[in-house]
Nucleic acid binder design. Structure first.
Lengths: 302, 302
DNA sequence: TCCAGAAATAAGGGATTCCTTAATGTGCGC
DNA sequence: GCGCACATTAAGGAATCCCTTATTTCTGGA
C-alpha cells in the first residue's frame, strides 16, 4: 500500500472514472488502473466497480475513502510542515471540561503575554500519557496523570458539586461529552454514585447540560466556581449527594524536565502567574475574535 | 516519501534511538537508519539529530511528527476499515450551530428509529460541498449549498435574532465558534452589521456565548426558537438591529438522486417526519448515554 | 449484431524501496 | 589514547513501484 496508490484511488473515487483521474494526475490510464489493481489486491476488496454512471464505490471502498483522503492530504501537508520559517507551536491538550472552559482563554492569554503560538486540542484522558510521551502534545491539562517520564503539577484546586434547578427533576443526570470519559472527574463521580447509564443524558457541551439542569431537566455535575454565578442568581442550587462536594485538582502534565521543550517550561511558568489563575477561576469572558483559533481534536492510533 | 519511512521516523522519534526502533520493528539497524536518511533527503531536514540523551527532534522534525503519526495510524486503520463485517455508516456533517444543538439529537433519533449507524461531524460551511462531492460525508446540515451535483432541501425555517441581557452591555458581540465561519448565519449577520472584529468575542460554544450575554457581557446572535426559553424567563431580551430578525432556513444538502446512497435517502425522508421537526424545534433534551458517540471534526486537510 | 468507450491486463524497463552484511564515523567515559 | 555504544555509510541483491505501449475484456448504445 503506497501513498500514490491511495492517491490514485481517491482521484478515481472523486472523479468517477479512471480516465478522468489519469488526466488529472497527468499519467496514462493504465498507470492509474494498475495502482488501483495493486491496492485492490493488497486490501482484498474491489473498492470501485464499473457501472453505467462511472466507477462506483463498494462498501469497503466507501469506508476506505475518508481515511485515504486524509492520508493523501496529510502527505502533502507533511512536506509543507518541515519547510523552515514556520514557528514552533506549543500543543496544549485538555480533557473535556478544561477544553471547554479554560483552555481557550488560558492559551489565548499565554500567546498574548509571551508572543507564543500555542494551539489547543481536546483529547480523552486515557490518551494523554501517550500523546505526551509520543511528543504529539507538549502540555496536558486535566486530572493527574501517572506514568513513567511524566510530571503532573497541580494548577488549581476546586470542588466538584452536583447542581439542579430548585424545583427540578432529580432522576436524571445531565453531562457534557466529558461525562463519558471514564477517567474524567464527572465520569468518576457518576461511577462513585453508581448512576445507571440509562439515567444519564449527554449534551453537546457542559454549558448546555447546565442550562438543561437550570430548566429543571435533572442534576448535573459541575465544577463549583464555574457555576457560582448561576447559583448566586438562584438558577441552580447545590444538590447533596454521597460523593459531593468532592475536592478535585486540575493538573498540568508534562514530560520530565530534560525531555520537554522550552515552550512547555514557559507555559508551566505562565500557569503559576496570578493572571493565569484569575483566568482559570473566572474564564467566562470568551476570547477576542482575532485570537480565536478553532481547537483540534487530537487522537492517536490504537 | 513512503509510509514505512514515515513509520520508521515515528518509531525513532518516540523511542529515542535507531537501535530501539530497529528492535521494535524487527529489522536491522541500518534498515531504519536508511529509511530515515531517505526521508531526510526527500524533505531536506535532518528531522532527528544525535545527542547525549538519544536522538532528538529538530524544529522541522517536531512539526513533522504529529502529521507522520497520523499518517501511520491512518494507514493501519485503512487496512482494518475495508475488512467486511463493519456496517456502512452514514456521515452527517453540520455547521457550528446545527452541530451543537440539532445534529446530535437528530442523528440519535434517526439511529433509534431506523436502526441505522449514523455519525455526526462538524465542518466549516465552505468545506461542505467538497466533503459531499468527495463522498466524505453523505448529508450536510447548514445553509443552502450551491454547487454542481448538489441538492439542498429546506428542513426548517427559523429566525436569526440578536439577544442580550435586559440591562447588559451592547458594545460587544458574543459568538460561538460558528461565528467565525464567514459563510454561517452568525458570520453573515456580523458582516451585514459591519461589526468590527475587535468587538467580537468568541466562546467555546454557542450556549456559552448566550450564557455570557445573559450575564450582561454583550449581544449575541441567536436562532430564535433556541433561546425562546431564556427570553420567556426574562434572562435575555431581543435586541433590535438593522438586520434582525433575519429569516434563515436550515437546509440538508446531498448529492443528486442517483449519486447518493440509500442511507442518505432514508435520512432525508426521516427529516420530513414530525418527530424530526419536533427535535429540531426543541432539541434541548440531550441524548441517552448509551447512544452518545462523540462527534468528529471533519476536514479536507486533516 | 456491431461498434465505441472505458477499464483491465500484459510485457517491459528504469527507478526506488527495503533488506542484508560489512565497514566507517562519532561522541563519551575510563 | 582506547574501548564502547551507537549512528551512519557502502555495497549488493531481491522485490516492488510506477510508468510506458500494446492488447484484451467488458458494457451499453446504435
Amino acid at each position: 500500500m503506497t501513498l500514490s496508490q491511495l492517491g490514485a484511488f481517491v482521484f478515481v473515487a472523486r472523479l468517477g472514472s479512471v480516465k478522468a483521474a489519469a488526466r488529472a494526475l497527468g499519467v496514462s490510464e493504465p498507470a492509474v488502473s494498475q495502482s488501483l489493481a495493486q491496492l485492490r489486491r493488497h486490501l482484498g476488496d474491489p473498492l470501485l466497480v464499473r457501472s453505467a454512471g462511472g466507477m462506483v464505490l463498494t462498501e469497503g471502498g466507501r469506508r476506505l475513502l475518508g481515511i485515504a483522503s486524509q492520508i493523501v492530504a496529510l502527505g502533502a501537508e507533511a512536506v509543507a510542515a518541515v519547510q523552515p520559517g514556520r514557528p514552533a507551536r506549543l500543543h496544549v491538550v485538555a480533557d473535556g471540561v478544561l477544553a471547554e472552559h479554560v483552555a481557550g482563554p488560558l492559551v489565548c492569554l499565554f500567546n498574548q503575554r509571551k508572543s507564543m503560538d500555542a494551539g489547543t486540542g481536546t483529547a480523552a484522558t486515557a490518551e494523554m500519557p501517550l500523546l505526551l510521551t509520543s511528543r504529539l502534545a507538549d502540555v496536558a491539562l486535566g486530572p493527574q496523570l501517572p506514568g513513567p517520564g511524566l510530571v503532573s503539577r497541580p494548577i488549581l484546586r476546586c470542588r466538584l458539586i452536583a447542581v439542579a434547578a430548585p424545583h427540578g427533576r432529580r432522576d436524571h443526570w445531565l453531562v457534557g461529552p466529558s461525562g463519558t470519559d471514564p477517567a474524567g472527574a464527572s465520569g468518576r463521580l457518576l461511577r462513585l454514585l453508581r448512576v445507571p447509564e440509562s439515567h444519564v443524558r449527554v449534551f453537546a457541551n457542559q454549558t448546555a447540560a447546565w442550562k438543561a439542569a437550570a430548566e429543571g431537566a435533572g442534576i448535573a455535575p459541575a465544577t463549583a466556581h464555574l457555576v457560582a454565578g448561576a447559583i448566586r442568581r438562584g438558577e441552580l442550587v447545590m444538590v447533596e449527594t454521597a460523593a459531593t462536594p468532592m475536592a478535585v485538582s486540575w493538573y498540568a502534565t508534562v514530560l520530565e524536565p530534560g525531555a520537554r521543550s522550552a515552550a512547555a517550561d514557559a507555559f508551566l511558568d505562565f500557569l503559576t502567574t496570578p493572571s493565569a489563575t484569575q483566568v482559570m477561576r473566572s474564564p467566562d469572558s470568551g476570547i477576542p475574535r482575532a485570537r480565536f483559533r478553532p481547537p483540534v481534536h487530537v487522537s492517536i492510533w490504537s
